[in-house]
Amino acid sequence: MAPRRKKIYEGKAKILYEGPEPGTLVQYFKDDATAFNAQKKATIEGKGVLNNRLSEYFMTGLTNIGVPTHFIKRLNMREQLIRQVEIVPLEVIVRNFAAGSIAKRLGLEEGSPLPRPIVEYSYKNDDLGDPLVPEEYIIAFGWANQQDLDDIVALALRVNDFLTGVFYGVGIKLIDFKIEIGRVWDGDFMRLIVADEISPDSCRLWDMKTGQKLDKDVFRRDLGNLTDAYTEVAKRLGVLPTNTQPIKPTLIN
């Protein structure tokens, strides 16, 4: 029997295990869905499989246009091999249309276009509810320096251009998304690369014609079956594992 893999980290939607080579990890996608900082939880059959496939699709596409990512290859239905990175403790949020917290904060109508893509940051800390932080805080507390932030904005906007185009091509409007950024060292030289995942868990996606939500808001706001929404995204992009049957979610407390 193979020895048990060493678990490095478990988050709300993924588990990281020690990888086969130094400097690599295995990222496992769970079926768990959480919202409102894990106050609402469910296990949603097939979600992990879909997100693994979708994240592979987006990360591969980014690599092809020269945006560096942590993705190496998909290993199976639920796992992918990734580069081990030092995660910058920020969620980098790119907004194209007003929705969620920015709509509330500024009294904007959900879905109204923003004058230009807005990049903002939240400090990765579940206990604090991932508070929004200005650049001033980020630099003062040493989470990233000014050069890093310039590089992060450039990466985020390139990801936005790529994703906006891909989704537009299949009739989906990219409202907003979040990414995480990792540092990798090549000798003495440090580079910033896109890490974590890109999936409907981390984007807001609306159907262009109907405005139907095809992302985690379906779960947050009880708008139907989350697997169906993610399956629809995967189908349109032509990335569907054959044996994913939509199954009713089972709620757990």
Rank of each mutant, 00 (worst) to 15 (best):
R4H: 10
R4W: 03
K7R: 12
Y9N: 08
Y9I: 03
E10I: 08
K12R: 05
K12E: 02
A13N: 12
K14A: 12
I15C: 14
L16K: 15
L16W: 04
Y17N: 01
Y17E: 00
Y17I: 03
P20L: 04
E21L: 04
P22T: 12
T24P: 05
L25S: 06
Y28L: 07
F29P: 01
D32Y: 12
D32C: 02
F36P: 02
A38F: 01
Q39V: 09
I44P: 08
E45A: 10
G46V: 12
V49I: 15
N51H: 10
N51V: 13
N51D: 13
N51L: 08
N52W: 05
N52S: 11
R53Q: 07
R53V: 15
S55H: 13
S55C: 01
E56Q: 08
F58R: 08
F58H: 11
G61E: 06
T63R: 14
G66H: 07
V67S: 09
P68K: 12
T69E: 03
H70Q: 02
F71M: 01
K73L: 10
K73H: 05
R74D: 04
L75D: 02
M77V: 04
R78A: 00
R78G: 00
Q80V: 06
I82Y: 07
R83N: 04
E86F: 04
I87W: 02
E91I: 09
V92P: 01
V94L: 00
V94C: 07
I102G: 02
A103T: 14
A103P: 13
R105W: 00
L106K: 09
E110T: 15
E110R: 11
P113C: 11
P115H: 04
P117M: 04
P117G: 05
I118L: 15
V119A: 00
Y121L: 00
K124N: 06
D126Y: 06
D126N: 11
G129M: 03
D130L: 04
P134K: 14
P134F: 11
E136Y: 07
I138P: 13
I139L: 00
F141M: 11
F141E: 09
F141Y: 14
W143R: 07
A144N: 14
N145W: 04
D150N: 15
V153M: 04
A156T: 07
L157G: 08
Y168H: 15
V170Q: 11
K173V: 09
L174K: 02
D176C: 02
K178C: 03
E180A: 05
I181T: 13
V184Q: 08
V184S: 00
V184A: 06
D186N: 10
D188T: 14
L192S: 05
I193L: 13
I193F: 00
I193P: 05
I193C: 01
E197Q: 11
P200W: 03
P200L: 02
P200E: 04
D201L: 06
D201G: 06
R204V: 09
D207P: 12
K209C: 00
K216A: 04
D217L: 03
V218A: 06
V218F: 05
V218W: 06
F219H: 09
L223C: 05
N225F: 00
N225R: 15
L226S: 11
D228F: 11
A229W: 12
E232H: 09
A234C: 11
A234I: 14
R236S: 01
L237G: 13
L237D: 08
G238Q: 07
G238T: 14
V239M: 13
L240A: 09
Q245G: 09
I247C: 03
P249E: 10
L251F: 12
